[in-house]
């Protein structure tokens, strides 16, 4: 998924401007020398220079201002990505409630089914991956995984 250099440049400039405005609220050192705000400001200025550079490049290459090119990405590829990201979001919100073992098994089966893996293979893979992670992290390395309301 590609956007134009000009768009990236504009984004960098706007982002840096916001940062420069925000760091005004940072305190300075006692003797008036710059303190916590110094490095963020320097970085923001450098970002702005890079942004200008990108915009100049974009204009030279006669790019459209807001090119949005999906490249080789197909619709199904895009949906696959959304599924992957969705799985991570689900973990953030649900894992503590439903527990790792159920979560891992269900998410793995659903993801593999979506990616058109054979049902039996996906169940076998989901069970083994869940078990390996459980044994490795919970049993061998003694890392607490989220156990959920039912304790598993």
């Amino acid at each position: 998924m590609r956007v134009s250099n000009t768009a990236i440049g504009l984004f960098l400039i706007i982002f840096s401007a916001v940062v420069l405005w925000h760091v005004q609220s940072f305190p300075s050192l006692d003797n008036g020398y710059p303190g916590p705000a110094l490095f963020p400001s320097v970085l923001a200025v450098l970002f702005i220079l890079c942004g200008i550079g990108l915009i100049i490049q974009g204009i030279r290459q006669h790019e459209k201002l807001l090119k949005f090119d999906t490249g080789t990405l197909t619709l199904s590829g895009f949906l696959n990505i959304l599924f992957v990201l969705g799985a991570i979001v689900c973990y953030i919100f649900l894992a503590e409630t439903i527990g790792f073992l159920i979560f891992s098994f269900v998410v793995l089966v659903v993801l593999m089914k979506w990616l058109k893996v054979h049902t039996l293979s996906s169940i076998a893979m989901a069970v083994s991956v869940t078990l390996v992670i459980y044994l490795l992290f919970a049993k061998l390395l003694l890392v607490p995984l989220p156990w959920g309301l039912w304790g598993w």
Binding site: V84, A87, F100, S104, V107, I133, F137, L145
Partner: peptide
């Protein structure tokens, strides 16, 4: 297609495990 979900799960658990 079988490997990627497994790798994803390792990513999630690995990130979670460091600070729980």
């Amino acid at each position: 297609n079988m490997l990627m979900p497994a790798i994803l799960m390792f990513c999630i658990v690995g990130s979670f495990a460091i600070n729980n």
